[in-house]
């Protein structure tokens, strides 16, 4: 399954992925119009700090997903075809169990709507918005093997190295 991977050496915490994500998940799909939408478009990725430097925190669509096990309404489920972990907004009751059990903190409670939010890998698009927008090309949408090979090949400039 293709997932989003990050070459953490190249993340400069510009948060472009956050804005691109929120715009992609808005009704209009346009930055200027999205700002005035209600409810406000939400980003499903968050740039966070770590001891290795900043990185975009987002759902990993785990093979063994704690959030699926914890979901009492069956809203959080794995898509049998794509393998993505998705939340059915109609079934979600906002109990935040998934928020609590996620080992990464990658499920976000949306207090405005009372629904849990997480990365859906931009369901209907070829490439997730975060990957397409990353100005330093730190993000990849690939199979893990592909990413691993690519990662080893790359030698980022010492400037962005941490």
């Amino acid at each position: 399954m293709r997932k989003v991977y990050c070459d953490i050496r190249k993340c400069v915490s510009c948060r472009t992925c956050e804005i691109a994500c929120a715009v992609r998940h808005s009704r209009s799909g346009d930055l200027y119009q999205a700002l005035r939408e209600e409810p406000r478009p939400k980003r499903l990725v968050r740039v966070d700090a770590s001891e290795f430097g900043p990185f975009p925190l987002r759902c990993h669509h785990c093979e063994v997903a704690a959030c699926i096990d914890a979901c009492k309404t069956g809203a959080t489920r794995r898509d049998p075809i794509t393998g993505k972990v998705l939340i059915d907004r109609d079934k979600c009751v906002g109990c935040w169990m998934c928020v609590m059990v996620c080992p990464f903190g990658a499920v976000f409670p949306d207090m405005q709507t009372g629904k849990a939010l997480k990365c859906d890998l931009c369901e209907s698009h070829d490439q997730p918005a975060c990957v397409a927008s990353c100005p330093t090309r730190a993000l990849f949408f690939e199979e893990f093997d592909e990413f691993e090979a690519e990662y080893k090949k790359r030698r980022p400039r010492s400037l962005v190295r941490r």
Binding site: I19, A22, V23, L31, L35, P41
Partner: peptide, 22 residues
Amino acid sequence: GFGKLGVCCRICNMGPCRIDPF
């Protein structure tokens, strides 16, 4: 997007600061 929306401040060295537009 921060630049386009004018919410990135580079005026002092406590920053750069950005306001989340959403």
